[in-house]
């Protein structure tokens, strides 16, 4: 459904002397995402995973390569054509507080994508929005609130409601659960898993936390310095990773039980 071919993105960074140096944030990324599947992309900060997310979402133009969404090359598309397609691919950003317009009520924030893509009567619109907010397990009364009146977890749920409002074919989650308390994180992740079996979208979960990646997806790619260094389909256990870098990320994970730590301290 979504295919990237040799996707690359360069940046030019000026150093102290004013001379420009080329930084390849994303290099030769070839990914194929199939319908109704779940994928994770793991990498540390600076690995280029956020840039890749922006490229896939066509928020930035790639330097090289192509992105096909259902055989249409969206990398070459004009803004107007792209806008019409946006109902098919959605994204949940990392910081949900800043991703919501502080001057807009939750109702209007969720209504925004619906109004852009569908022509509904006011009553239909209200019904749709109320069903969306119940889907993300928030009370209907929160629609009248402003973003600052909600907790971090609730704001995240609002962003999720916005993302699923247009029944997209696939959704990118860019570090969507980092910065949340672990209990909240677990609830959000479980909600997303539940929603996926419901709406049958493809998820691309971008995260630095291999635990989250493994929890959310069957297919995991590990990214380092702009390249995908390992890709495992239908992963069953973290032992499946063989690449040295992936192993290092796994070994850095904190233990689940205190008795495992003696083993880790020995390393």
């Amino acid at each position: 459904m979504l295919r990237t071919i040799n996707l690359g993105r360069d940046y030019y960074v000026k150093d102290k002397n004013g001379s420009k140096t080329k930084v390849e944030a994303v290099k030769n990324v070839c990914l194929t995402l199939n319908e109704n599947n779940s994928y994770s992309l793991v990498g540390e900060s600076g690995s280029g995973k956020s840039t890749l997310a922006k490229l896939i979402m066509s928020l930035e133009k790639p330097t090289t390569g192509e992105i096909y969404l259902d055989n249409k090359n969206i990398a070459l598309m004009r803004k107007k054509q792209l806008r019409i397609l946006r109902s098919d691919f959605q994204m949940v950003l990392q910081d949900s507080y800043s991703a919501l317009n502080p001057k807009m009520k939750i109702y209007d924030s969720i209504a925004e994508p619906i109004r852009n893509f569908e022509k509904l009567t006011l009553i239909q619109e209200k019904e749709t929005i109320e069903s969306l907010i119940t889907k993300v397990e928030l009370p209907v009364s929160s629609l009248k609130k402003y973003p600052y009146q909600l907790s971090g977890g609730q704001q995240k749920r609002v962003c999720i409601a916005r993302a699923i409002a247009t029944n997209p074919k696939f959704i990118v989650f860019d570090e969507a659960v980092s910065g949340l308390d672990v209990t909240v994180r677990k609830k959000i992740l479980d909600l997303l898993l539940k929603l996926r079996s419901d709406i049958k979208s493809t998820y691309l979960f971008i995260t630095h936390d291999i635990d989250v990646a493994f929890y959310m997806a069957d297919n995991i790619a590990v990214m380092k310095d702009g390249e995908i260094v390992e890709y495992i389909k239908n992963i069953k256990s973290l032992n499946g990773f063989k690449h040295e870098y992936s192993r290092m990320l796994i070994d850095s994970l904190p233990p689940l039980y205190p008795k495992q730590r003696d083993y880790q301290e020995a390393i």
């Binding site: 994180r185 677990k186 929890y215 973290l238 032992n239 796994i250 689940l256």
Partner: peptide, 14 residues
């Protein structure tokens, strides 16, 4: 118990 259950249990690393 609730806090403990918030950990994402992974299949054991050998």
């Amino acid at each position: 118990k609730e806090l403990l259950s918030a950990r994402l249990l992974r299949k054991e690393v050998s």
